[in-house]
Design a protein around this nucleic acid. Structure first.
Length: 630
DNA sequence: GTAGGGTTAG
């Protein structure tokens, strides 16, 4: 802290008296004010500021800057307003630097309108004024405003610097924005700055261009731990967990230590790949960060998504503090794993704990209702969410309700709700309704709905399949051919079914029609044995292909060798008998496999968990956690 | 003097 006496020298020239006070009295007043500001004595400083104002006096900028810092520390919005009013009192125009400080204060108080107002009133603005505002809009996701400000700034011939670019890059919604900004960066010769680079890496990752992110990263001569986190996080967020893990190894070899942010991304990578063993290994290394909220949240999510609910519950129970994300993660995790009632109970506990639910939490709650067919609960939470929690229902909430109504046989109500939506239904919403049509066997509606999906998402192979099968069933071969032509024209193929299983920390993939697995012959043999064993206890292999193909989601062609059956056979052969068999797959499980796995869990006395893109099935002793409702 | 980078839930 600077001494008060040096400050006094600084503001002496500013003593232009317009009142009857003697210059000594004025000095005393200013002296006192400065002292209170530097002592961070907010109440006294404000009182003192009042007397200055009544005598038409202003102190120097550094002192006010100190006072504003004090307001920020105390989050004293009202007091900040008083300081601002004082500085503009009687038509005074504070100097540029001080207005920048004020703008920054309003930004930190999340009062962007006030910040922008001051900005508009400035007779002159420098690069910091612009950057403060641009960065604020970027952070608050007002991306259009941020980009527009950059353009206005250039028009006023104020040259952006590394601060400006690293902030505004966050607001790029498409590659064309990035390319434009990259031009500016190169023109100013700022491309080697580490902040600019990490912002570029982030934006490429966000836009789903991890290869571009990697090339920016690889061109870097010197980096730091944060850039490593950017690139690892970028891959983890883009469902490229294996790449993220490879980079993590590289980071360690380069001599960097993994801290919370890195480990969180590593966990996310494990979560995406359902690598329970590796995730558990990471858990051992992060016990020293056991108070880190974000890391614990990621850990809970990892255990939920790997289907290891016991571990998830344990971590959640032991957390020292929990935020809305912790609770939401656990609520959704329970719901996805088939524990809907426990999810709703936890939601009530969350409210009792005083944590306010948000948009995502309610999605989890409605998800729990929809996956257990809890019609009344679903309606209750949906109808009351606005009144009870102040949350407007969005697409995801409507989606859960449409799913709930549709699967519960209230297809008409589902359609009615879709038509009543406040927001425009998108392809996902219509696809949800299509799934309900399938369950209810309503082909007339399915045809209409599938067409709607294709209007919004012409690349949706599942909906083409639905249409094609409906036409085939009613012998409308012309229409069948038309659909096939359209699919060929778009170069579309059904995604092949694929299942993964982790054995000895290695992932084994099983894909329909793929012969490349080294133990393929043994796996086939084991599967055939298993099928025979199951037929012995009442398994009847499903043969109704057409029915199976009537799917909103995509289904595999050959029922007998669905990839999860191969993965199960392999798991039974290789994993010790006490271990739970965990399988992750890219498509939703079909009815035949569901029966197959229930019986297999009984015959082989094994617990099996299957994670599909939407939810999880825990098979044990002939039963599934979903209660055959999915 | 005032502005900039990484991590968690659907």
């Amino acid at each position: 802290m600077k001494s008060v006496t040096t400050k006094l020298k600084l503001f002496r020239p500013a003593l232009t008296s317009r009142c009857s006070y003697s210059s000594t009295d004025q000095t005393l007043l200013l002296n006192e004010f400065t002292r209170f500001c530097y002592q961070r004595d907010l109440p006294r400083a404000l009182k003192s500021m009042d007397s200055l104002q009544s005598h038409g006096l202003w102190a120097d900028s550094a002192t006010y800057s100190e006072l504003i810092k004090c307001c920020l520390d105390h989050r004293a919005v009202h007091e900040g307003n008083l300081v601002c009013r004082h500085l503009y009192f009687n038509g005074n125009q504070p100097m540029l630097f001080l207005v920048n400080v004020l703008i920054n204060m309003y930004v930190k108080f999340n009062l962007l309108d006030k910040a922008h107002n001051l900005f508009d009133k400035m007779p002159q603005r420098n690069v910091i004024s612009w950057t403060t505002l641009i960065s604020a809009y970027s952070k608050h996701k007002h991306h259009q405003k941020a980009l527009k400000l950059l353009v206005l700034m250039l028009r006023e011939s104020v040259r952006p610097n590394v601060y400006t670019y690293s902030s505004v890059l966050r607001s790029c919604n498409g590659m064309s924005d990035v390319r434009m900004i990259q031009c500016g960066i190169v023109k100013e010769g700022l491309e080697s700055d580490v902040f600019v680079r990490s912002a570029l890496i982030d934006v490429f990752a966000k836009l789903g261009e991890p290869e571009d992110a990697l090339s920016v990263f690889d061109e870097m001569v010197t980096g730091d731990a944060i850039v490593w986190n950017s690139i690892i996080g970028g891959f983890a967020q883009n469902n490229k967990g294996d790449d993220a893990l490879k980079l993590f190894k590289r980071m360690k070899r380069a001599g960097f230590t993994a801290e919370q942010a890195t480990l969180t991304s590593v966990l996310r990578a494990c979560t995406g790949l359902a690598l329970l063993e590796l995730g558990m290994q990471a858990h051992v290394h992060i016990v020293k960060y056991d108070r880190d909220l974000i890391l614990n949240n990621a850990l809970v999510d990892m255990y939920c998504k790997c289907g290891s609910l016991e571990d998830a519950r344990r971590v959640f129970r032991q957390m020292k503090e929990r935020d809305v994300i912790s609770w939401s993660t656990m609520v959704s995790g329970l719901a996805q794993n088939g524990y809907s009632h426990e999810a709703l109970k936890l939601f009530e506990a969350m409210k009792a704990s005083g944590t306010k639910p948000n948009y995502v939490t309610v999605v989890g709650v409605l998800f729990a209702c929809s996956h257990a067919g809890l019609l009344e609960d679903g309606w209750y939470y949906f109808r009351e969410m606005k009144k009870l929690y102040g949350i407007e229902p969005g697409r995801e909430h409507y989606g859960c309700m449409i799913d709930l109504l549709g699967k519960a046989g209230k297809l008409e109500d589902a359609v009615k709700l879709l038509n009543e939506m406040d927001c425009e239904p998108d392809a996902v919403t219509w696809r949800t309704l299509l799934g309900a049509c399938r369950v209810q066997g309503n082909m007339v509606l399915a045809e209409y709905v599938a067409k709607k999906v294709l209007e919004l998402d012409p690349e949706d192979a599942g909906s083409y399949t639905v249409l094609s099968n409906i036409y085939a069933n009613s012998q409308r071969w012309d229409s069948v051919e038309e659909i096939r032509t359209r699919m060929r024209y778009r170069g579309m193929k059904k995604e092949p079914g694929c299942s993964w299983i982790e054995v000895n920390k290695k992932i084994h993939a099983f894909i329909i029609g793929d012969e490349s697995h080294p133990m393929k012959a043994e796996v086939d043999k084991k599967l055939n044995q298993l099928i025979h064993g199951l037929i012995g206890i009442g398994y009847v292999p499903e043969t109704d292909f057409v029915l199976q193909d009537l799917e909103g989601e995509q289904m595999e062609d050959s029922l007998r060798h669905h990839s999860e059956k191969l993965a199960l056979a392999f798991g039974l052969m290789t994993l010790p008998s006490e271990k739970v068999i965990r399988i992750r797959k890219n498509l939703r499980i079909c009815g035949d496999c569901h029966v197959f796995f229930k019986l297999a869990s009984k015959l082989e006395r094994r617990s099996v968990v299957i994670r599909d893109p939407i939810r999880y099935h825990h098979f044990e002793d002939g039963k599934c956690s979903c209660g055959d409702y999915w």
